[in-house]
């Protein structure tokens, strides 16, 4: 309860700072527009205004301050503008419309989920291989760890163009980038998890004369679940980033990344911000969903969360 109050206070503080930041960010645009509209602006020449600091401008033109929160194409849109745009493009538009954020989010989401499924599937398989084969462990594991330090996303434009040149396009190239990003966290986490049973437990299985398969299904797999879920949460956030970045280099027409790119081409800042928030909401929802699944699954398995 106390934490909730604290969190809300911090959030209110952030929104307050945001509103305040709109003043220096937007005041010059507002004054230029006011001058074009025939109002008296202090100082009158655009040239001298450029050299003045934003705060001095705001102090000299008190009448303009209230307008910074309702500019058409602001440098920094006010929170309510973004919220309105989000509302307008999700609830007010038909979901099949190209202008609906739900439509774009769903395009990105499907690439994310497909990539996440491929990435985690392969990652779990590789982890099982690594745990059961010493050769694989010693040859692949160092590379898997090194690969975490590499900005893999630099590959994204190339993957898309290469796949395009062999005739694959649409959902799959984005999903492959998403899979690639989610693959290694799952491998590393799952290997750790499958190795988490201690000697005592493994020895107990041995005294039961359990086969390798039985040890895997009854001991290793269940005890790896907390580790798996921890890395799944990282992986799904990474998948979403991969899917969004995958939409950038092709000039894709649909998806949250395409909204970001189009917004940055045409200076539609409100559109960029709303796409950004849509991506954030999507990421939070996906992580929360996995958290819920984790709690239910681990609860039924009798693991204390």
């Amino acid at each position: 309860m106390k934490s909730l109050v604290a969190v809300l206070t911090v959030l209110a503080g952030i929104i307050g700072i945001w509103y305040l930041a709109c003043v220096p960010m937007n005041i010059k645009g507002v004054l230029d527009a006011a001058e074009r509209g025939g109002e008296v602006v202090e100082p009158a020449e655009a040239q001298t205004r450029r050299d003045l600091s934003s705060l001095a401008l705001a102090a000299q033109n008190g009448f303009a301050v209230t307008r910074v929160w309702s500019v058409e194409r602001p440098r920094l849109p006010a929170p309510h503008q973004v919220a309105w745009e989000l509302w307008d493009t999700t609830v007010m538009k038909k979901v099949t419309s190209k202008r609906s954020l739900v439509f774009h989010a769903q395009v990105t989401l499907s690439a994310t989920l497909l990539g996440f499924a491929i990435g985690t599937g392969l990652g779990i398989l590789l982890a099982v291989g690594i745990v059961h084969s010493r050769v694989m462990d010693m040859s692949v594991m160092p590379w898997a760890i090194v690969s975490q330090t590499i900005p893999i996303i630099a590959l994204a434009p190339m993957i898309i163009v290469v796949l395009y040149s062999i005739g694959v396009q649409g959902l799959l190239p984005k999903a492959i980038i998403a899979a690639y990003l989610s693959f290694f966290p799952v491998v590393v986490g799952m290997v750790k998890g499958l190795r988490s049973p201690d000697h005592m437990q493994l020895d107990l299985m041995k005294t039961y004369h359990a086969s390798k398969g039985q040890v895997f299904w009854k001991l290793r797999l269940p005890s790896s679940m907390p580790y798996l879920f921890a890395s799944l949460k990282i992986a799904i956030a990474a998948s979403l980033v991969g899917a969004i970045v995958g939409e950038l280099p092709t000039g894709a027409v649909a998806g949250l990344g395409a909204r970001l790119l189009a917004g940055s081409y045409y200076g539609q800042t409100v559109q960029i911000w709303s796409a950004l928030f849509a991506a954030a909401i999507l990421a939070a929802a996906l992580v929360a969903l996995l958290g819920l699944l984790e709690r239910v699954l681990l609860g039924r398995m009798g693991v204390k969360a």
Binding site: A6, V7, V10, I14, L240, L276
Partner: peptide, 28 residues
């Protein structure tokens, strides 16, 4: 108080696709 409030928010933001702010910051 600040720590209690900021830590959950920070954890939340750390999981978001922040690369998306790139077009805004390039504009600024």
């Amino acid at each position: 108080f600040l720590r209690r409030g900021l830590l959950p928010v920070g954890n939340f933001v750390a999981a978001l696709p922040i690369v998306g702010t790139a077009p805004i910051l390039v504009m600024w």
